[in-house]
Design a protein around this nucleic acid. Structure first.
Lengths: 151, 151
DNA sequence: TCTCTTGACAATAATCATTATAAACTGATA
DNA sequence: TATCAGTTTATAATGATTATTGTCAAGAGA
């Protein structure tokens, strides 16, 4: 996910897809398929769920999108594709991007097992959900998480 | 999961449950609910799927079992409860226990976000699935993974 | 232009893991 | 014996995702 201009080559940029791409562009809220559907559906009321899943599949296949499964309930999607970890609030489901100290290697790995990739997921409670106290941090966090742009 | 003798206190050790516990005891294969059902069902043909899920829920609630979601298709269960990471073969679905160098802390975490837990998952290809070459390691790995006991 | 091919679309239907519901059962205890 | 919590089976429901089908539009040749 870097561009809204046609990726071409077997990928036809239809109006529906353009809208999905626009929604995803720089989006840090890690939306689920359902959230994407809801938002795009407002502009294209005729659009079906299948179109969302198809488009997401296309993007995943082209490496322009990450599917993250930190949320036990459903897949969430992240247009920010460089390797990074995630942190999810177990109360409201908000997900933030985080990093890990260094590249991880498994210890005690069986000989001959070739490691291809690694997922790191943190769970916790975001400021907004930690009682009604930390109101200032909470607001900042919510804005950063529930909203769109990542510069 | 440390014992087959009654955990008591709101946990009734019925024959079905005893059988599930016996199957889980020291099991390193990280079985899914369906696998547990299949195996236990051989001994108790009348047993329903709900009983498996109920029992697993009980054990999870008592902290005697871990639910791991490294497998995108279904939950897998691990009676080895101390903190550790997992490594899954993307081809055959086998899962091994591994460790990570040190305790992880997220970098770039939003202020005020309290971290509660962490999951680390590795994906790769096990020796048995990496071509038909590494036969010796493969056999060892398969025995270690597909079979039961952890001493 | 005409036709062919290739995605894409909407509309369903199908799958599949998991959860929920309801009713019957069991054993311990009052 | 009556009660009661916890368990069980049977069954239905949920909910995310995938598959299927028929239609359509755009570009590539002929």
């Amino acid at each position: 996910m870097r561009t809204t201009t046609a990726p071409s080559a077997g990928f036809r940029l239809t109006p529906q897809r353009a809208e999905i791409l626009r929604l995803l562009e720089g989006n840090t809220s890690h939306p689920s398929a359902e959230e994407i559907y809801r938002r795009v559906h407002r502009k294209f009321p005729g659009m079906s769920f299948a179109t969302v899943y198809n488009t997401l599949q296309s993007l995943l296949g082209r490496g322009e999108l990450l599917e993250i499964r930190i949320d036990p309930k459903r897949s969430r999607f992240d247009p920010f594709t460089p390797q990074h970890a995630h942190l999810m609030c177990v109360k409201c489901g908000a997900i933030a991007d985080v990093r890990t100290p260094a590249e991880l290697k498994p210890l005690g790995k069986p000989a001959g097992f070739k490691v291809l990739s690694c997922n790191v997921e943190f769970y916790g409670v975001c400021p907004a959900c930690a009682g009604k106290t930390a109101t200032k941090e909470a607001a900042k966090w919510q804005k950063r998480t529930q909203k769109r742009t990542r510069k």
